[in-house]
Computed example of a mutant assay.
Amino acid sequence: MTKRNKIIYWIATIWLALGMVSTGIVQLIHMKEEVALFTRLGYPAYLLTILAVWKFLGVVAVLIPKYPLLKEWAYAGFFFTMSGAVFSHLAVGDGAIEYFGPVLLLVLTGLSWYFRPADRKTIGNDEFFE
Rank of each mutant, 00 (worst) to 15 (best):
T23I: 14
V35E: 05
G42T: 12
K55F: 09
W15S: 12
L41S: 07
A96K: 06
K71T: 09
K121E: 08
I11G: 04
T122Y: 01
D119S: 08
E127H: 04
I11N: 01
G19Y: 03
P102V: 04
K71D: 11
L70H: 07
T13P: 03
R4C: 05
V86A: 11
M1P: 03
L28Y: 08
H89R: 10
T49L: 12
A85W: 03
V21H: 01
F56W: 13
L51V: 15
V53T: 14
F79M: 15
T109W: 01
R4V: 15
Y43I: 09
A36R: 13
L18A: 14
K6G: 01
S88T: 08
R116T: 00
T49G: 08
E72D: 14
F129C: 03
G110A: 14
F56L: 09
F80G: 06
P65W: 06
A12P: 02
W54L: 15
A91N: 12
F128G: 07
I25T: 06
I11P: 02
L57P: 02
V21Y: 00
N5Q: 14
W15R: 01
F115P: 00
N125H: 04
Y99D: 06
L37D: 07
K71E: 09
I7N: 01
P68T: 09
L16E: 02
N125A: 12
I50A: 09
S88F: 07
H30A: 14
L90R: 02
Y67L: 14
W15E: 05
G95V: 08
Y67K: 13
A91S: 14
T39G: 13
Y43C: 06
V107E: 02
P102C: 02
T49W: 00
E34I: 11
D94H: 09
I8E: 01
G110W: 01
L18D: 03
A76D: 03
F128M: 11
A17E: 11
G42L: 11
I25E: 02
S83P: 02
F80L: 13
Y43D: 04
H89E: 05
D126C: 01
G84H: 05
P65N: 11
G24R: 01
E130K: 15
T49E: 07
G95D: 14
L28S: 04
T49I: 12
I11L: 10
K66C: 12
V107G: 02
V21G: 01
P68Y: 08
F87A: 13
D94C: 12
L90M: 09
I97F: 12
T23Q: 08
H30N: 10
A36M: 10
I123G: 00
G84R: 10
E72T: 06
K55I: 08
L37S: 14
W15H: 06
K71W: 10
Q27T: 02
R4Q: 10
L48Y: 06
G58Y: 12
P68S: 07
L90N: 03
T109I: 01
G95W: 05
A85C: 04
V92Q: 08
S88D: 11
R116W: 00
I29S: 06
A61D: 13
A76E: 03
G24E: 00
S88G: 09
F115Y: 15
A61C: 14
Y43G: 05
P102G: 03
L63A: 13
M1A: 13
Y46N: 15
L41T: 05
T81S: 10
Y75A: 07
A91I: 03
T109S: 04
I25Y: 13
T122N: 05
W15K: 02
